[in-house]
Simulated assay, not measured.
Amino acid sequence: MQLKPINQQVVAIVGASSGIGRETALQFAREGAKVIVSARNQAGLDSLVEEIRQAGGDATAIAADVREFRQVQAIADKAIQQYGRLDTWVHLAAVELYASFEQTTPEEFKQIIDINLMGQVFGAMAALPHLKREGRGALIHVSSVEAIRALPLQSAYASSKHGINGFLESLRVELMHDKVPVSVTEVQPASINTPVFDKARTKLGVKPMGVPPLYAPADVAKVILYVAEHPTRDIVVGDAGKAIALLQRLSPQLVDAFMRQSGFEAQRTDKPKSENAPDNLYEPISGYDQVNGEFPTQPSLTTWLDTHPTVTWGAIAATAALGAAALLGWGNEV
Rank of each mutant, 00 (worst) to 15 (best):
D46M: 04
D46P: 04
E51T: 15
S38A: 10
Q42D: 12
G57C: 14
Q54K: 15
K34M: 05
A39Y: 09
D46A: 13
Q54I: 13
S47N: 09
N41V: 04
E50T: 15
L45V: 04
E51F: 02
I52P: 00
I62A: 09
K34D: 01
E51G: 15
A39C: 06
S38R: 02
I62G: 08
E50V: 11
T60H: 12
A33W: 02
A33M: 01
E50W: 05
G56F: 11
G57Y: 12
E51L: 14
G57E: 14
A39F: 12
D58P: 03
S47G: 11
A61G: 13
G57Q: 11
A61D: 09
G44E: 06
L45G: 03
R40F: 07
A55P: 06
V49S: 14
A59P: 06
D46Q: 13
R40I: 05
A61C: 07
Q42G: 06
E50P: 08
L48A: 06
L45E: 03
A59R: 01
R40M: 11
R53A: 10
R40K: 08
R53E: 15
V37Q: 02
D58G: 05
D46K: 12
I52C: 01
S38K: 04
A61L: 14
Q42P: 09
V35I: 02
G56S: 07
G44K: 03
I52F: 00
A39S: 14
V49H: 09
I36A: 01
V35P: 00
G44H: 05
S38W: 05
A59L: 02
R53Y: 05
D46Y: 04
D46R: 08
L45P: 02
V49N: 09
V37W: 02
R40N: 09
A59K: 00
V37L: 04
N41C: 10
L45R: 02
G44N: 10
R40D: 07
A61S: 15
E50R: 15
A43R: 12
A39P: 08
D46N: 11
T60A: 11
A59F: 00
V49M: 05
V35E: 00
S47D: 10
G56P: 07
D58T: 14
L45W: 01
A43H: 11
I36Y: 01
Q54L: 15
D58V: 14
G44I: 09
T60L: 11
A39K: 07
E50Y: 08
A43Q: 14
G56V: 07
D46I: 06
G44T: 04
